[in-house]
Amino acid sequence: MTAAGPYFEDVNVADEISSLTKAPITEVQLVKYAGASGDFNPIHTVHHYAEKAGLGGVIAHGMLSMGFVGEHITKWMGETGTLKRLGVRFIAITRPGDVVTLTGRITGKSESDGEHLVQCELWAEKQDGTKTVTGTATVSLPSRV
């Protein structure tokens, strides 16, 4: 029934986390995200305001990009994994029309208090290769032992 993810023993440092490409960001998506998150800063939804602010048009919420990163890591770990920590740095703006691809890599494995933890680095890129977000995560995975 559940979408099982990897076991701790199946994961190795330097392994790549299979990438995820999102559908192009749309203006309607930014309106939906504003409504759902409660972030009504008009730089994300009101064109003339964003232009006046010197942004050259509306820009996506940083937290939408982090939402993509969260989707990516939770899809990889499956329902048998548990996300313990997720941290990101926002480094470039995304706009409507941008296509974001999420990628990652395993950077460490450890055991603590009976938990089997995996550390990962994660990043998001636009269609032109610009990195928009970099991040790190810690995931607890089931063990066969």
């Binding site: 029934m1 998150s37 989707e71 890591i73």
Partner: peptide, 28 residues
């Protein structure tokens, strides 16, 4: 809004049978 289709966020029946026992919120 994120476009995350994980059934744990949408499907009550599915989520009830999961180890969480109900709908959970996404990480962000």
């Amino acid at each position: 809004a994120i476009g995350d289709d994980n059934p744990l966020y949408y499907d009550e029946e599915y989520a009830k049978k999961s180890r969480y026992g109900g709908i959970i919120a996404p990480p962000t």
